[in-house]
Design a protein around this nucleic acid. Sequence first.
DNA 1: CGTCTTTGACCTGCGC
DNA 2: GCGCAGGTCAAAGACG
Length: 361
Amino acid sequence: MDPWISSQPSLSLDLHVGLPPLSRHQAPLALAKPKVLVEENFLQPLKKEPEVAALETELQRMSEENRCLAEALTAVAAKYEALRSQYTQMVAAGATTTGPSSTSEGGSVSPSRKRKTSESLDTVAAAPGAQHPQYGLHGGPHPGAAAAADQTECTSGEPCKRIREECKPKVSKLYVHADPSDLSLVVKDGYQWRKYGQKVTKDNPCPRAYFRCSFAPACPVKKKVQRSADDNTILVATYEGEHNHGQPPPAPAQQAHDGPGASKNAAAKPPSPPRPAAPPAPHHPQLHHHHHHHQQQQQQQDVAAAMSGEPVGAAAAATSELIRRNLAEHMAMTLTRDPSFKAALVSALSGRILELSPTKE
DNA sequence: CGTCTTTGACCTGCGC
DNA sequence: GCGCAGGTCAAAGACG
């Protein structure tokens, strides 16, 4: 959960199940339109047939479900916040001066020098507050950062650019440790990818490979894979967009240990996977989302603990806690894999974020 | 034979 | 407007 969101005074998640997200620009229209619809319904009271009644029942049911989910989320958010502050205190008490890990992350990815838009997006994606995809928000730009970008766009007076930026797919990055002798630019993330191009870029002697999701024909997700210029044992996978389909069926278990021989078709026949926009599963130690790995682990633990109703500091009974944690993680994964849940969550959060955004026009 | 990868050509956006 | 660089297309070849 994002600190920025958590810090907002009121975060009652108003899940608009089944309704498209409302941007603040659309708000007045959206307010006006349903009114008309209601009036139409009133003008035709005789049309209320069993179908309509069923729909109403369904709507009520979903509203109820909606409210329950909102309550659950609020509870989780509250627990998360409590645990987070507890963790912060513990870290402060420990007086560990470990700064942000200075791996090759910052400089490893050399963003395009020409294309400012993608560069800024990369920056946004790499922002410390970037949404953790684990929580179903798919590595989207941090709302605060997005708002900041919004502001600069407004001041620069380039509406076209701004629109283009807003239309850009979500970008997330994945860092994968790879054998330097293995020349294949394959990142096993659980989806099926079809390579459609390769290019040597100016700022990196290693070629960059371009992949499209081949699991669903209409899936808009694209992936770029390139070795880090600084450390060629690191593969940098950049994901653009969100999958519009479920996860591919799990492959045979032996693929979890795909050896060198699996390099050729590894992209097409992946191991039982995490979502690319979702974080690597614990059994994928070689996968690293670039943004603040340790913080993510802590957040995973926090959320898992919060969901299992267990304080983080309980070092004893480690085994049972581990089981609980796994269970909680499984529940979280199940939830985040549910497209309708994600849609509702994203809808609610985006609407809420826009409402609370400090850069309201 | 169908699918996937490779790779040169082409397209597009950006800076000068 | 031109040149550069990133991104995409599509024909040809490889592979199972």
